[in-house]
Design a protein around this nucleic acid. Structure first.
Length: 271
DNA sequence: AAGTGGACCTGCTAGC
DNA sequence: TGCTAGCAGGTCCACT
């Protein structure tokens, strides 16, 4: 999916345009990961408020409650007037006079869930246990070091879990570990305070750079304007198995951790 | 309790 | 050219 940069880029591409628009119709397609939890007609007539993000979730405020949205592995949102007839992978339309917000998600791991507020179930339940936002001042080397010390899993697995810091999925966890010079297989509790500091910086800078570049488009990611991202063009390890490391020329290695592919340079990244 | 592996669903691609 | 196994950006859940 869409990791934090793709979700944030998506949010930025439609939040201002949809704010204040009144819902005129709602269309629901095939089932997504979780049920909507409300009759779709209940949204008709309500105005859309702020669109905010927590981790990889978006919260779209309505006058009564709101919608928690997740893009899963293959989801994207579009917003505009040129939406046309829904295709086989278009599973949710929020129609307003300013345009239609449409969720397209071939694999349907994504979700749209109504909640009375972001602090009430089911939204609060889904958001509970999420780690710090990477751009939160509280997320620093000391925090990351303390959290990593409590785990014995590989540091990459700990990052991906999202319980310490949210937002880095498979691409950006690999890239941040490369930036920090840390072998992704290193046990969490063996990361020194100094290296945790470098890793925290790398997580922030990698995610920030990806937002600047409009995210990564590996297959079907597009922002709500339909624009593709460009970060994948400057990924240094992700998806580059066997290719030379951009820093030292050593072939990039691919291993599997927790059923996910991990890419790293065996020379630049150390335990 | 923490760690591991499977499940969800569909489409694309590399390889035979 | 055509089929198939394997793989894909996430996260929850059951089991050890």
């Amino acid at each position: 999916m869409p990791e934090l940069p793709e979700v944030e880029v998506t949010r930025l591409s439609f939040a201002e345009r949809i704010r204040g628009a009144r819902v005129t119709a709602v269309r629901v397609g095939k089932p997504l990961r979780w049920p909507l939890g409300s009759a779709p007609e209940a949204f008709v007539g309500q105005r859309v408020g702020e669109v905010s993000r927590r981790g990889k979730y978006l919260w779209l405020a309505l006058e009564r409650g709101g919608l928690l949205m997740h893009l899963g592995m293959s989801g994207s949102l579009s917003f505009g007037h040129a939406t046309g007839e829904p295709g086989p992978h278009d599973h949710f339309d929020l129609v307003t006079a300013r345009g239609t917000l449409r969720l397209t998600d071939p694999r349907r791991f994504g979700a749209v869930v109504w909640s009375a507020s972001a602090d009430a179930a089911p939204a609060a339940t889904l958001l509970a246990g999420l780690g710090l936002e990477p751009f939160d001042d509280r997320f620093d080397g000391a925090h990351l070091h303390a959290a990593l010390r409590r785990r014995r899993v590989a540091v990459k697995t700990a990052l991906l879990g999202g319980r310490i810091v949210v937002g880095a999925g498979n691409i950006y966890a690999c890239e941040a570990l490369f930036e920090a010079g840390i072998d992704p297989r290193t046990p969490s509790d063996r990361i020194s305070r100094a290296r945790a500091g470098r890793l925290a910086d790398a997580v922030r800078s990698t995610l920030a750079r990806a937002v600047e570049l409009g995210g990564s488009t590996l297959r079907n990611f597009r922002d709500a304007h339909g624009a593709a991202g460009a970060f994948q063009l400057e990924a240094k390890v992700y998806g580059r198995a066997g290719k030379p490391c951009v820093r030292c020329g050593t072939p990039i290695r691919r291993v599997v951790q927790g059923a996910r592919a991990t890419f790293f340079c065996p020379v630049c990244q150390r335990r």
